[in-house]
């Protein structure tokens, strides 16, 4: 299999804040088109790590290369053009008079043509289901809508790598589904997507690769099945296993394999078991 190009390369990354190491020796390679979830408890260093991917934070030791550029040598604005970072709380960034102008902000910062701006704003508004609010003030929107607006204001300039910090926090089931759909769309468009979350259930059926962090280190990096069924890693990171995996463990006496993560797999095995019992 041909491996795609490396988008992010992290080598021996240490980062200290107030003479305390928050990241301790991170090594990581992210390739184009990957969908990655970074999981871990609060204070594990997840947000600190992703802030290195667009140069907001610079390594104390080691290096981070994004699209081949050493983050220490280029400005945040330069990296931001290719790396979209959506912060957890939309209220930390919304400021414009109207929803439309909010989305225009990044496009204007990057110096797009007026015509392109108009097209991109329309596109982002429709994509996030905000078209009817285009002339409203962002502050009159509900929290879910504000969150979508924050996402739209980054999506609009079509960055190659998209990073979402806790995209599902405070979202109801329907909104979560919408975000999942969006992530799928980004994937089909060939984008690289990274999300930071504690939401194991959201990750388990939608992501191929999972990275687990705990106290500033990566303690697990691999396929979702392999990592999210590894009790050792999960308990170290204080994460609960996905419900399907938990079910499978509880049923392991009945010869159900322990590494199931999809509902369909479990149903299949249970059906086999039931019909097998009748024959």
């Amino acid at each position: 299999m041909q491996l795609s190009e490396v988008v992010v390369e992290v080598k021996d990354l240490f980062f200290s804040y107030n003479s305390q190491f928050v990241l301790k020796g991170i090594n990581l390679e992210i390739r184009k088109g990957e969908m990655i979830a970074i999981l871990g408890e609060n204070g594990a260093g997840k947000t600190t790590l992703i802030k290195h991917f667009n140069g907001l934070l610079k390594p104390s030791k080691g290096f981070v290369k994004v699209f081949g550029l050493d983050t220490r040598k280029v400005s945040v604005a330069q990296l931001a053009r290719k790396v979209g970072l959506v912060f957890q709380n939309p209220d930390h960034q919304l400021f414009a008079e109207t929803v439309e102008k909010e989305i225009e902000f990044a496009l204007r910062n990057f110096g797009f043509e007026e015509e392109v701006i108009k097209r991109r704003v329309d596109w982002a508004l429709n994509l996030m289901g905000l078209a009817e609010y285009r002339n409203r003030s962002p502050f009159t929107l509900s929290i879910g809508e504000r969150k979508r607006l924050a996402i739209a204001s980054v999506l609009c300039y079509d960055p190659e790598l998209l990073i979402f910090d806790e995209p599902t926090a405070g979202q109801d089931y329907l909104q979560k589904e919408r975000i999942a759909e969006l992530l799928n769309l980004l994937k089909t468009r060939g984008k690289t997507v990274i999300i930071v979350t504690h939401d194991v259930e959201f990750v388990v059926t939608r992501f191929e690769r999972v990275i687990i962090m705990s106290s500033g280190q990566i303690i697990g990096d691999g396929s979702t099945r392999e990592i999210l069924t590894n009790l050792n890693i999960l308990s170290k990171a204080r994460l609960l296993p996905p419900q399907i995996a938990k079910c499978a463990w509880l049923l392991s006496d009945l010869n159900i394999p322990k590494d199931l993560i999809y509902p369909e797999e479990l149903v299949e095995k249970l059906k086999d078991l039931i019909s097998g019992g009748h024959e």
């Binding site: 667009n54 931001a80 960034q93 300039y157």
Partner: peptide, 12 residues
């Protein structure tokens, strides 16, 4: 956090 968020949207 706000400075970081706006810098991420290309604010210089």
């Amino acid at each position: 956090i706000i400075i970081d968020a706006q810098k991420s949207r290309g604010l210089e």
